[in-house]
Design a protein around this nucleic acid. Structure first.
Lengths: 237, 237
DNA sequence: CAGTGGTCTAGACCACTAA
DNA sequence: TAGTGGTCTAGACCACTGT
């Protein structure tokens, strides 16, 4: 099971952009050139560029080329990447574990419908507070069904990243996310955690992550303080 | 400039799903079958299915097929589709024009950086209130640079849809959107418009639409009442 | 005009699912 | 094991951009 070629091309280009080897406004090498550089078919190059475009790192323009776009200033949080990856290297991030992972029953009324298989299993629950440059930006409640996760409670998080742990220990990859957004007024408890005044507006995001394991989903309920950082995303047709 | 084949395939499948010719959980015909049905190469079929997948209408599963997923109950508003298209046919929608289109100067501090070309032109501004099943869900301020839009102020909206007007009259198509989200507490004016109490939490979305015309962008500032309807989206890696 | 990305063809092999 | 979607090749022509 070796890595796909287009991922190899994607990773190479992504790294070059991150290392500022291409600056904002620069054109990437043309598709034909990349084809010869990496020794792959053009469709493979295009698949790699498509990924970069979906993530908003380049824009393509017919007749011109693939243009590197400026790094985003706001948090690209409405994406499938884990928190550790969406916050640029420029910023200091911290995670405070308010509730270490425990095994428990599902809540009576869950925010997404659960399958029978999921309901039959217990769930792992963790509660984390996320900080960017020492400012509290997010409270995250995560629920994972106890289906493929042997010895989950004894695992050490890889760089504090749940997604990296799932990838390295269980070969579980995130393939997509379905999410619902609401603006809510913060209750006292929530306001305390987010270090804001009660009744302040908070962005509530309920997520269902799709993984490479069929029938295995991860659920998250996020409460975001958008006063200091806005949350952005990019969508292509 | 005839329509691309993959769009033809997409439109056909999309219509069949909308007409319930495929029910939730049904498998679409396999890619090889669609290839022969439409008389196109497999890559064309895959491109069409990719669109459907991005819109969350199907999920693909290796070894099994393309599965039709249930219609969304919440408003898929964080997508590039116009308001008229994201709200399912099941619901009644209304638009109240609070401010008919006028030509004016740009605001001094705009929420996205503007190019010199845009700043040199004036902008068209309109303010619309959006209702779903007679409930106020959104206040929308839209700004269009006066660059390609001849006689814009005298145009009649096609079914109340700005995007359809742009397509049919000016051949302008929306290719993507970049957006920032915040939760804010409603001021009195805003609360009145959205028919909620002052200080209630509201979802504020600032958008920059990318079009097929280079250097032509459309800007929108949305205020969403998420009490009755949540706003959803789906993202694929 | 040459070069770019957009679309398309007609194959091939692989990884996964279900019977 | 048969059939599915995932990846890949090696071409081709078209639409658009800038010179």
């Amino acid at each position: 099971m070796k890595e796909a070629q287009y991922k190899r091309v994607y990773n190479a280009l992504n790294a070059q952009i991150a290392k500022k080897e291409f600056l904002e406004g620069d054109l990437l090498p043309s598709e034909n050139l990349l084809t010869t550089q990496f020794g792959v078919a053009r469709s493979v190059v295009r698949q790699a560029l498509l990924e970069l475009e979906k993530e908003g790192k380049i824009v393509k323009q017919q007749g011109k080329g693939s243009i590197v776009v400026p790094e985003r200033k706001s948090l690209a949080l409405l994406s499938v990447k884990g928190f550790s990856q969406v916050v640029g290297a420029e910023r200091k991030i911290n995670t405070i574990m308010l509730q270490n992972p425990i095994k428990r029953k599902w809540d009576g009324v869950f925010f997404f419908p659960l399958s029978e298989k999921e309901l039959a299993a217990d769930c792992f629950y963790l509660k984390r507070l996320r900080l960017v440059d020492n400012q509290t930006v997010m409270l995250e409640n995560t629920y994972l069904p106890d289906l493929y996760l042997e010895d989950f409670l004894t695992q050490k998080f890889v760089d504090g990243s749940l997604f990296q742990l799932l990838k390295s220990q269980y070969n579980i990859e995130i393939k997509g996310v379905e999410q619902e957004l609401r603006a809510i007024n913060a209750e006292v408890d929530l306001a305390t955690n987010l270090a804001i005044e009660p009744n302040q507006a908070v962005l509530h995001v309920q997520r269902k992550y799709i993984t490479n394991k069929k029938d295995f989903f991860i659920y998250s309920s996020l409460f975001c303080n958008t006063h200091n950082y806005s949350f952005s995303n990019i969508i292509k047709t």
